[in-house]
Design a protein around this nucleic acid. Structure first.
Length: 693
DNA sequence: CAGTGAGCGAGCTTCCGCTTGACTT
């Protein structure tokens, strides 16, 4: 009997159904070994030797794997073809090789190093295979062509893992000492936080700039209205900074009213809009947020369920590849349901844009195009594949539509531009633009917003008469705060984080209370978030630099290609990092504003209250601490500095306190009485200020 | 649905990336 090991139980089930007999397929449930949680687990003195353990959570799994392995003649490691997959395969060999036979890797043995040949024979029971799609043929082919474990790739993963550990477990304790307990920092989360903080400051420092735009309406010979916009004055293109105020606008308006106009040219062209590539994890999360308002966490939970039902391919992927089989399926569906003209003559394949893509999987797509969404006359599904709720229906439909649309022809628009010359004191260029949909193409399945605007039929020789000049005042606007979608998009662009971690990143910066999701579901940094960010940016600029990951990835690639030793890469980072860290422990002061006092008096002992920091941010504590342990939460009344919060009226319960907005541990807003704990009034919704309620 | 700070020093917090379950009201 041969044992095949993959990461995911769903994948195991599918593969087993393809194989005739003589095979057993089991799953490792991801990584089986890791650095210990409770300590660093890296011997920096001994060339960064890692100390791996089987986490308690994985013990049971590993036990089961061992049992299966004992009964097997051969073990085939079929984990993903990427850094992490290769590492999982390697750790499986380590865990599944009986103790005495293990190749010396993590445990230094006193026996001399074994020869390469001998190592070979010890692991000959293991074979490594990879495949890019889960079909009987692909699996069969993979089994016929096994290879060795690629130790260079494993080392690239080790380097990544060790570097992240050194950074995370180096910086976090520094924050505990200098800012507040239970804080954290890391290569990924600290950059995410930095993005949010810097965006907030851009917004805060933003100075809106006034500018004016001018529209001009003409009458055609047939008495139809032709709406145009002012494009140029003399040779200057109109935009922000051109017409700065009402005075300048008035002057232009007056001149336009007296100007002579004639049509310069009419340009007609066809515009094609291509469909989008099928989903990756990142674009799925972005689109589900934009169209369905699902958080990234929700999206992943629902996608997982669809995957387990066999309805979609794997949901953690950065690849836009589509299998041949799926391309054929999409085309067939299109031809028989929408007709030839909505199918493409050839298949459309996509290339990955992001350099860091590891492409171990396909794009996210429906497994069977025939299972179209309910409202598109989908086939009845077997019982175990029934969608359970509206959310599953919606997400499935989104994935299905995106995939089918990716194999559809572009939408075609007819666009017309009428350029008009105006001669007054100055020379003006005005333009009327029309766009009309000629063929909907992929928009039939993937509706998107586009502006259609008709303009009246017109000839170049036609005389036009001025009807109206309409100036309008505008202001430039600050960039928007990040939400789930835009933050994930940005992180992906920067190559920071992986499909499996986008959603956890969003969670962790909220759990640490570094950022909160406001009522518009956008991220705002908290006070403690800004403080942590500032400490990191000032004292550890390299680690929170957006280029840091990019540089690391390049070096990891070289390790994977066997061009660099992983210990060298780690050493070159670690030595200066460690030196700086030691230095900063000595020089950086504790960040709590110990001396900042307030007008408020402690009602227990009469001493003044002072601002203190905790990991939740600022609060008020008695200056008599520790004799008097009185504390008060920060409210609008005493936080005269940061008055972004306001009172929402008198408390309906005690009538004394004000209603203020507060946050729960999890970050959800609620409304409570400022007299807490004397009055325990609290409500999820804004209380209505009536006396008779 | 409302937390929280210093110091003595115990013991603990913390990273990123792979993957799902279930000690219970």
């Amino acid at each position: 009997m041969k044992l095949i090991i993959v990461e995911s139980p769903t994948k195991a089930k599918t593969i087993e159904s393809f194989l005739k007999g003589g095979f057993k397929v089991v799953s490792s449930y991801g990584h089986v070994r890791d650095l210990p949680k409770s300590k660093l687990g890296i011997d920096v003195e001994k060339n960064f030797e890692p100390h791996y353990i089987v986490p308690v959570k994985s013990k049971k799994r590993v036990g089961e794997l061992k049992k299966s392995a004992q009964k097997a003649d051969q073990i085939i490691l079929a984990t993903d073809e990427d850094r992490e997959g290769e590492a999982i395969a390697f750790h499986l060999t380590q865990v599944l090789t009986p103790e005495k036979k293990k190749i010396s890797k993590s445990s230094p043995s006193k026996t001399p190093p074994r020869s390469a040949e001998k190592q070979e024979s010890q692991i000959s029971r293991f074979e490594r295979i990879v495949f890019h799609e889960i079909t009987p043929e692909a699996i069969e082919r993979a089994i016929q062509n096994p290879r060795e474990i690629d130790l260079n790739l494993v080392n690239a993963q080790q380097a990544r893992r060790i570097l992240d550990r050194l950074v995370g477990y180096g910086l976090s304790p520094f924050l505990w000492k200098k800012v507040a307990k239970r804080l954290s920092a890391g290569r990924v989360q600290s950059v995410a936080l930095r993005l949010v903080v810097e965006r907030e400051r851009e917004i805060k420092n933003f100075k809106p700039e006034e500018y004016w735009l001018i529209d001009v309406v003409f009458n055609t010979e047939k008495n139809k209205k032709l709406e145009t916009s002012l494009i140029k004055i003399d040779e200057e293109t109109i935009g922000v900074g051109s017409i700065k105020n009402k005075k300048e606008s008035d002057k232009t308006v007056d001149d336009l009213k007296k100007a002579d106009f004639k049509i310069l040219r009419i340009t007609k062209k066809e515009i094609r809009r291509n469909s989008f590539p099928p989903f990756t994890t990142s674009t799925l999360q972005q689109t589900a947020f934009a169209r369905l308002r699902f958080s990234s966490k929700q999206t992943m939970r629902i996608a997982q369920s669809l995957y387990e039902k066999g309805l979609i391919t794997y949901m953690r992927t950065d690849s836009v590849n589509l299998s041949q089989q799926s391309l054929v399926g999409a085309q067939q569906w299109l031809k028989s349901n929408l007709g030839e003209k909505y199918a493409l003559p050839s298949y459309r394949r996509f290339k990955n844009k992001s350099k860091n893509a590891q492409e171990a999987h396909e794009a996210i797509r429906p497994t069977l195009p025939d299972f179209s969404p309910k409202n598109l006359g989908g086939q009845a599904r077997p019982e175990h594949q029934k969608l359970e709720n509206a959310q599953e229906e919606k997400l499935y439909e989104l994935i299905w539509r995106r995939f089918i649309a990716s194999q559809m022809p572009p939408a075609i628009f007819d666009s017309t531009a009428v350029d008009i010359n105006g001669k007054g004191k100055k020379e003006y260029l005005l333009r009327a633009s029309g766009t009309v949909l000629k063929f909907d193409g992929f928009l039939k399945i993937w509706p998107s917003k586009f502006e259609e605007k008709e303009i009246p039929p017109i000839k170049e020789s036609e005389k036009i008469t001025l009807e109206e000049v309409i100036p309008s005042q505008h202001f430039t606007e600050p960039p928007a705060r990040y939400n789930d979608a835009s933050l994930i998009k940005k992180l992906e662009e920067l190559g920071i984080g992986r499909p499996s971690t986008y959603s956890p990143i969003i969670s962790v910066i909220q759990e640490r209370n570094y950022v909160i999701r406001n009522e518009q579901k956008r991220f705002e940094p908290t006070e403690i978030g800004e403080k942590v960010n500032d400490v990191l940016v000032e004292h550890f600029p390299k680690v929170v630099d957006v280029q840091f990951t990019a540089q690391m990835e390049e070096e990891l690639d070289e390790i994977a290609q066997g061009k660099l030793k992983w210990q060298k890469v780690i050493g070159e980072f670690y030595v200066p990092f460690e030196k700086n860290l030691k230095e900063k422990y000595k020089t950086v002061e504790h960040q709590a504003p110990m001396t900042e006092t307030t007008d408020e008096k402690c009602e227990k002992c009469g001493k003044p209250m002072v601002f203190r920091y905790s990991r939740f941010g600022k609060f008020l504590g008695c200056s008599g601490f520790p004799e008097c342990r009185n504390i008060k939460p920060l409210t609008d009344q005493n936080a005269h500095k940061n008055s972004s919060q306001k009172s929402f009226g008198k408390c309906p319960k005690c009538g004394q306190g004000e209603i203020v907005r507060r946050r729960t541990k999890k970050g959800r807003f609620f409304y409570g009485c400022s007299k807490y704990p004397d009055c325990d009034y609290a409500s999820w919704t804004k209380p209505i200020a009536t006396d008779n309620s």
